[in-house]
Design a protein around this nucleic acid. Structure first.
Lengths: 201, 201
DNA sequence: TCAGCGACGATAACGCCGTTATGAGAGGCT
DNA sequence: AGCCTCTCATAACGGCGTTATCGTCGCTGA
């Protein structure tokens, strides 16, 4: 049970700040303890080591992503809802790029590796996208198909664009958002809406 | 000028092996020197430090990716060519996952950060995809549009799927390749082929 | 031929890191 | 009061990146 002591909260806040401001390399046990005004031992008594602390930050990251996407209010235009969900997803990633990188296993922060239960938390967030997809199918904006598969395709594309944006590789075009992100999602949605393909051919 | 001494080659080979077999965390100056049968100084005399050595490995990685994609022989079915290019891209990433992660800035290996000239090498590889896209447009398989933008959309989606596959997040469906990768690319291509949208509406 | 020089790399040192052991203090329970 | 548990500061161990020092080659030029 995490019993919200002050030191524990101070460590988490300092860790989030360090990760956000200076990136993964700044997040060392000693630096963190110094920054939080305590000693390195606190990290071990409260978390059992850096990986567990990172795990907590990742969990917070997933929770924030979930809330951010949940804050998108459904309208009567399901496709617009889907694009706004994508916008919220991207905005969250751009605001917390290092956390996003750790969440999706790219940053390998301090020997930290994704565990099954965190993967489950990520899958919960994925469920939101599945819901939007399912609504879009019910509304006829996407043709009937396996919602998880369709949501996964949308997610892959969105994730890929976001990763390229974080790496700076989206500079292959002048205006990445208008030339890559929105057209890509639009084309994908279009391909997913055309009938005469897929399972109900 | 790199004057291929034995030590230099031994260091590069050991680094590639360590990175491939044990991941980024195993690639330390001391470990590398031990593995290559020399002292840490060799890393500095030959490369000037770990970041420069990593840079060389990244350059090799881009070159390998380029060759791998270039080995796809054009046929008379441009869409099939495009899918086979995607397959070659993915296969290379799966064979060298850690190198791929470093190449696209996710791994932050030893304070290494992508530099402009490496970004250029990556853009050269991207040019191959632009070529295939341009050919597909000439053949009428894709509607006329900015080839760089269209290639960028395909790349984003492909990169996203590959990253999710490397993270294990593609487990949202049972058969990711058949339910995510190929359908996603197929739908995207379809959305990119339909006329009545885009610049030449 | 051989003195001198320059490149290579082994040794050792500095300060940082993660992690663990030890012990001191604070607070609650009997 | 006595004890016990939880919390954390101190200190230590080994490994890390990096730099300085210096010995040892192989080459060059007279």
């Amino acid at each position: 049970m995490p019993e919200e002591t002050d030191v524990r909260r101070a460590l988490l806040e300092a860790a989030a700040r360090l990760l956000g401001e200076e990136g993964p390399s700044a997040l060392s046990t000693r630096r963190l303890a110094r920054e939080a005004g305590t000693s390195t031992m606190a990290v071990y008594t409260h978390f059992g080591g850096m990986p567990a602390l990172v795990r907590e930050i990742v969990a917070d990251g997933f929770a924030r992503l979930f809330d951010r996407v949940a804050a998108v209010t459904p309208s009567d235009d399901v496709v617009d809802d889907l694009l706004r969900v994508a916008g919220a997803y991207r905005a969250n990633a751009l605001e917390h790029p290092h956390v996003y990188a750790v969440m999706f296993g790219s940053a390998s922060l301090g020997g930290y590796r994704l565990r099954d239960d965190e993967l489950d938390v990520g899958l919960a967030a994925f469920g939101q996208l599945v819901d939007v997809t399912r609504r879009a199918m019910a509304a006829g904006a996407l043709r009937e198909d396996d919602p998880a598969a369709v949501a996964g395709q949308l997610w892959s594309a969105l994730h890929g664009y976001v990763m390229l944006e974080l790496s700076g590789f989206n500079a292959v075009v002048d205006d990445p958002e208008q030339q890559l992100l929105w057209p890509m999602l639009g084309h994908l949605v279009q391909g997913l809406s055309v009938r005469g393909h897929g399972p109900d051919r």
